[in-house]
């Protein structure tokens, strides 16, 4: 079976993950942070399906679908929170939103 070797997929997944993580750490806007989080999740999904295909095992697919579902839910809740926060604080700058400071 010829095609793209698994290493390529994994490298892509790693790049996407790091970009996502970088976004979460660097960006100040809450919406961008959420988007970066989605990116991280999807990078993991790529790794799952890549392994699934390479190992000819459907478990990876199952996990991917599962993660997608969870991600959809997370986005729904997350965006609702973002809207609520904005209505309260009129900002989405996470450096300003630090009420949990000990």
């Amino acid at each position: 079976m010829m095609g793209v070797p698994i290493e390529h997929y994994l490298v892509l997944s790693a790049i996407l993950f790091v970009i996502g993580a970088y976004g979460v750490i660097i960006r100040k806007n809450l919406i961008i942070v959420l988007m970066s989080l989605e990116l991280m999740l999807n990078s993991a999904n790529i790794a799952f399906v890549a392994f699934s295909r390479a190992l000819l095992d459907m478990t990876g697919h199952v996990f991917m679908i599962m993660a997608l579902t969870v991600a959809a839910v997370e986005v729904a809740v997350g965006l609702a929170l973002v809207v609520a926060i904005y209505m309260h604080k009129e900002t989405l700058d996470i450096d300003v939103l630090k009420m949990l400071k000990g």
């Binding site: 993580a21 979460v24 750490i25 996470i94 450096d95 630090k98 009420m99 000990g102």
Partner: peptide, 18 residues
């Protein structure tokens, strides 16, 4: 002493986790 770790900054936690 320990509470100083709780900065409340989301990015700080994320970086720490990473």
């Amino acid at each position: 002493v320990l509470r100083t770790a709780q900065t409340g900054l989301l990015r700080f936690y994320a970086a720490l986790m990473a």
